[in-house]
Amino acid sequence: MTVKTTAGRYGRALRSSVVLHAVMAVGGLIMALYLVAHMYGNLKIFSGQAAFDGYSSYLRTIGEPLLPYSGALWILRVVLLVSVGAHIYAAFVLWHRARAATGGKGGWRYQTTRNRRGVQRSYASFTMRWGGIVILLFVIYHLLHLTANVIAPGGASESPYERMINGFSIWWVVLSYVIALIALGFHLRHGVWSAFASLGANTSVVRRRRLNQLAYAVTIVIIGGFLIPPVSILMGWVR
């Protein structure tokens, strides 16, 4: 069981959980940054249809003429896709390892039913995995809805603005969106702090507190920012 050679150790360490967590952290932070930008874009809904649709096509012209039409967006998409892929891959490998380490039962591996919640773990911290899956399912649904427009509750449209308005005028579409955002909120609340810790940035008890405060702030900004447009549409403040 002992890893003997230096090269063997180096290789083993490269595949270690520490490295997978770093991968996950970088991927997660990139996604979180993307979410900030995405949220900012969504808020353009309040500037009217022209501005919103214009913004959408503007995204496709970034970097021109250095990059072809849609080039930057594609680069962004590739980066995002790699991040998502790496994040999910790492998540599942680590999940598998955690199960293997605990006889498949994680925090529930003891006979006693007492203190199953442990002493200090937060709800967010132990729902990362299932929460992540909820988010994944939502993202697929979300892309099919608003990007590909294959699913089109409230009616399909060429205009991104109209797609938003059509979709979010229906209460259950908004509700599903809100639920997904809550899941995302929990994920970010623990994820942002955890990402920094995984990358080595948690250097003291004080820093731990600061990073957790940062995670709360990021979560509130992102979730709040995302909630405003659909709620506004549903309430009829934007039409």
Partner: peptide
């Protein structure tokens, strides 16, 4: 770290349950 993983221990998701039970007060950082 290589040996830690080779022994079959899982990775850390920064939950902090360890620090709550640690008799020696080792901090999460």
């Amino acid at each position: 770290t290589a040996q830690h993983d080779a022994e079959g221990f899982g990775g850390c998701t920064q939950i902090g349950e360890c620090t709550a039970v640690c008799p020696a007060g080792i901090p999460l950082d």
